[in-house]
Every structure is written in C-alpha cells, then in structure tokens.
Design a protein around this nucleic acid. Structure first.
Length: 116
DNA sequence: CTTCTTACA
DNA sequence: TGTAAGCA
C-alpha cells in the first residue's frame, strides 16, 4: 500500500475513494488487504493526471469508456492481421512466380553493384 | 507498525 | 480531503 502511495504520490484516502468510485479494482488477500496490480497503479497515475488537468468524476468515466474503445479496436486489429497474412502470402506467391519465369542464370553482376 | 473501516468535520 | 478511533 505504502508502495502504491509513493508510486502514485496519492494519499491513502484518495486511493480508497477512487476505489469506491470503481476507478480501480485491487484484489484483496489476507486480512482484507489491497493487492494492487501493475494495471491498477498505471490507472491511478492516469487518474492523477486527469485530476491535475481539472477533471473530476467526469474524466473518471472517460477512462472507463476509453478502455471499452480500446477493446473494440483490438478486435479490428485482429481482423487486419488476418488480412495482412493473406496479402503476405499473395506477395510471396507472386515473387516466386516472377523468379521462376525469368530463370536468372549466368549473368555476372554489374561492376557498379555494391555489397549490401 | 501498517492497513482497513467507519464516521465526523 | 484530512483525521481519529478501534480492529486485524
């Protein structure tokens, strides 16, 4: 806990208050003590920045919705990676085809070529 | 000694 | 938001 306070430069009161506002959800362990993960600390730092910018509970919900947007974008990126894989295979096939049709045999490289 | 909860200011 | 009391 003290570690989180130092890492975030927030008071225990603030950290607990943000927890009641559902901004962070640390897991509990022995004796009902808060166990903060890296993600929780990162979110607290983000909250602090928003607070310094003047935002209150408004910016708080902004972050909550922002995470939903990120998760939605992840799905789009997954679709993109699949199409990229297809494009990659197509280009690969085209390169093989071009090289095969043009049997590059004994043609000494021009003297102007530099090692690269 | 540190953290947690509740509650008052 | 700070702080005090009482418990773990």
């Amino acid at each position: 806990m003290g570690t989180v306070m130092k890492l975030t430069s927030l008071t225990a009161r603030q950290i607990r208050y943000y927890e009641t506002q559902e901004l962070v959800k640390p897991q509990r362990s022995d004796g009902n003590r808060r166990l903060y993960s890296l993600n929780d600390v990162d979110r607290l730092l983000e909250i602090k920045d928003y607070l310094d910018e003047g935002l209150n509970m408004a910016g708080i919900r902004e972050i909550f919705s922002q995470k939903q947007v990120e998760s939605e974008k992840r799905k789009e990126e997954q679709r993109k990676s699949l199409t990229d894989d297809d494009v990659r295979k197509i280009l690969h096939d085209e390169i093989l085809r071009a090289g095969g049709l043009q049997g590059m045999s004994s043609q000494p490289t021009s003297p102007l070529q530099k090692p690269f």
